[in-house]
Design a protein around this nucleic acid. Structure first.
Lengths: 151, 151
DNA sequence: TCTGAAAGTAGTTGACG
DNA sequence: CGTCAACTACTTTCAGA
């Protein structure tokens, strides 16, 4: 997953797939001036090199019953490796995203819960983890902006 | 986009599309025990009701040259409306996501920049915005975990 | 590496239970 | 709300430039 040279055509194809991952190769082709087989070959290559990691549906968590969201700063026990923290966090299905960060906290985690009660329960379980010393949460009031693709 | 009742079949279909947004209706159908037209009709309905907001490609920002990422807490001028903040933030293509939050900050913004220099420039332009009083950033060291779909 | 054609497969619509 | 069947469109492979 290192540096892969992308030409303009590749970037246009990627941009099109970010806008609509279910677009047909023919449709993308007319947009960039290429035939459908040529587009498919490039998309296959982009997937093979890891530039495109996959295709996913953008869903409304609210409609699925996930109405509560929070950012959680996680403070770890001394000498906790990122790998150890990861293997802890990935056992929580409510953890939607986790980044190691600069600053006082070791990681910032995004949680999706069905409601505040659920969120509280998850935070409690999180704090019971040996690698987690403490947490600090801010609850998301509203999603202002969300740009697909570059997440 | 309020409450929409989803049955088990709908949830399985959504889960499948989160895993692979380019899956064929026939393929989804064999997974959930439905014919392709039946799946298509449900997917059309899920899109119409806003449960599925779209389909997007998951790309590796690193491969596209976006190597620097940051969480930015934004502190706003008094009586700034979320709408005003939004119309400010959406003029920044580097803003990948923004949430209004509880706590001292008014919003948390996620930035994608090509490098630290670019990040610095974006932060400077952000702080020049009238609605933005101040910002506080933490740089992302590494993406530990990322679950597609529930973003 | 592309295009163009041929063959297979999937999407889409309409009739019907 | 589901299936089935027919038509259309897309994907995929292969030959050739």
């Amino acid at each position: 997953m290192g540096r892969v040279p992308l030409d303009d055509l590749d970037e246009q194809i990627v941009a099109h797939l970010i806008r609509d991952a279910r677009a047909s190769y023919a449709e993308i082709g007319t947009g960039v001036g290429l035939s459908a087989p040529a587009v498919k070959r490039r998309v296959d290559r982009l997937r093979g090199t890891g530039v495109i990691k996959g295709f996913t549906a953008r869903v409304d968590p609210h409609a699925l019953g996930w109405t509560t969201e929070a950012h959680v700063e996680v403070f770890c026990a001394p000498r906790t490796s990122p790998a150890a923290l990861l293997s802890c966090l990935e056992r929580f299905p409510e953890v939607v995203r986790a980044d190691t960060v600069t600053g006082k906290a070791d990681a910032v985690v995004r949680l999706l819960a069905s409601d505040i009660r659920h969120l509280e329960a998850v935070l409690e379980r999180l704090r019971e983890e040996p690698v987690v010393l403490s947490t600090r949460s801010t609850v998301v009031l509203n999603r202002l902006l969300e740009r697909p693709g570059d997440h």
